[in-house]
Nucleic acid binder design. Structure first.
Lengths: 261, 261
DNA sequence: CGAAGTTTTGAGGACCTTCAAAAGTTGTGG
DNA sequence: CCACAACTTTTGAAGGTCCTCAAAACTTCG
């Protein structure tokens, strides 16, 4: 029921890190019917143009979301770790505007969209939690835009790897200064808008400068604070702090007031 | 009541372009209490670190959303036109991770967050519409990441200006091939991750090649299809098509089926 | 052990930046 | 209505980051 390695449990933990659910809602969430799928490395789960019928909960492994441009270029627009609800986007949208695929071998849980819509409607706190999750995803997209648009190659890579470390520590997988991100330099490059060749050069430069060590996916950050200063990483955009407003203010209240965490 | 230039009416039109609301929901939406604010050019409406208490409906003018990096660089992560609900993000989030400001003189409607949360809860169709709007915003963020990460300067600028033309035509402001975007080249540059100087050069190159003409904010695109081909613009990511699932499927239905537009 | 994939290294070049200054535009006040 | 200040755009020149092409070195895995 509360197997901590179950994908639904992981997603619930992510949700409740922001705001706990009522016992009823929690039970309903964990009772969502799903289909478990085990995929190898580099497999597409959603393709551009698909009409999504289900939603993906990542249980194990790394997924990416990418878009391609006509001349063959590919941009990875997000990376996902266990516990992420990867395609809430598909709930409301008719046509997928991007691809979702595995970055490593992965196991995913697939929930039919009508079930999610129904639970979101039956339990407004769940509806709000899902919405909140998409808002945080949007905040991450914004930060990636900033990363690629206004930082140079070294800053970009450090920023990305600090974000991933932070998120990986949040789910209790590893310390943020020392974790494994089992992806290739080519994929790293596609995530930060550089070429694979230049990514390689930048990584060795970062190693030489002692800012960050990348060894085939093993990331270690000797001085977290210094690395944050180097690339301007500030985790507010990851919004670990919980939603601003709770059910208390939902009544015809006159004005908002902060909710204690 | 249905003054077509009222900000709420514009936002409602945007919502209903995707999926019509019931008469009740529509009336409740238009009855939202608001405060109207008239701002000059280059004024901040939301600052990084603010705790949002209200939500912004853009009635007139252009707004931008931006983030800055420590060395002074600024990245505009979105541009907003009348009818946009600019800061739904602020509904659930405790701390603003970005700035929202006017790009031109603008008039905005400000709705206290509790009212929006209440209406979203009382009318699930409105809750879903707001959520859907944030999903479309997220899709736009993704495309901007692709734009900056995987296209060169000329393609970036054309893509941005095709997107803006498309959106401006959607709200009935002007034809997409011939519209006014009253912003400076410096701000254009901050939106596409280039410098102002290079943006100027790229714009004259595009004019010389007959792809696109920028004359102090007056945009004209002689051959829309050719311009789309040039930069790989495909408006699916703007999701004008309406949400995938309607109330019909919200009952304990077994499987999803498409809803006719 | 060989094949396929990944990373490193090299060399030349393109795109874009930075610094700088001139030219053009807009708005305000005398 | 002109004058002037402030802002915006254009143009020039030099340089750096990053790209492309190419090949060698290293790693992984059947």
């Amino acid at each position: 029921m509360s197997d901590p390695t179950n994908g639904l449990t992981l997603a619930l933990a992510k949700i409740e890190r922001r705001r706990p659910l009522s016992a009823d809602a929690r039970a309903a969430f964990l009772a969502l019917p799903f289909r478990r799928r085990i995929s190898k490395k580099y497999v597409d789960l959603v393709r551009e143009g698909d009409r999504p019928t289900e939603c993906i909960f990542l249980e194990q492994g790394i997924l990416n979301r990418s878009k391609t441009v006509p001349d063959g270029g590919r941009q990875i627009v997000s990376l996902h770790i266990p516990g992420d609800m990867v395609d809430l986007h598909g709930i409301l949208v008719q046509i997928a505007d991007h691809r979702v695929g595995t970055e490593t071998a992965a196991t995913t849980l697939h929930v039919a969209i009508p079930h999610l819509l129904a639970i979101a409607e039956a339990y407004p706190e769940i509806g709000r939690a899902l919405w909140f999750d998409t808002l945080v995803d949007a905040a991450i997209y914004r930060e990636w835009t900033v990363n690629i648009g206004r930082r140079d190659g070294r800053e970009r890579l450090v920023h990305l790897l600090l974000e991933m470390g932070y998120r990986i520590e949040q789910i209790g997988l590893a310390p943020r200064t020392n974790y494994v991100l089992p992806i290739s330099q080519a994929d790293l490059a596609d995530a930060v808008g550089l070429t694979q060749v230049h990514t390689s050069r930048v990584l060795t430069a970062l190693r030489n400068d002692g800012i960050l060590d990348w060894d085939g996916g093993k990331v270690s950050i000797p001085d977290w604070a210094a690395a944050c200063g180097f690339c301007g990483f500030d985790p507010v955009y990851l919004h670990g702090e919980g939603p601003r407003h709770g059910p208390a203010e939902l009544s015809p209240a006159p004005m908002a007031s902060p909710v204690p965490a």
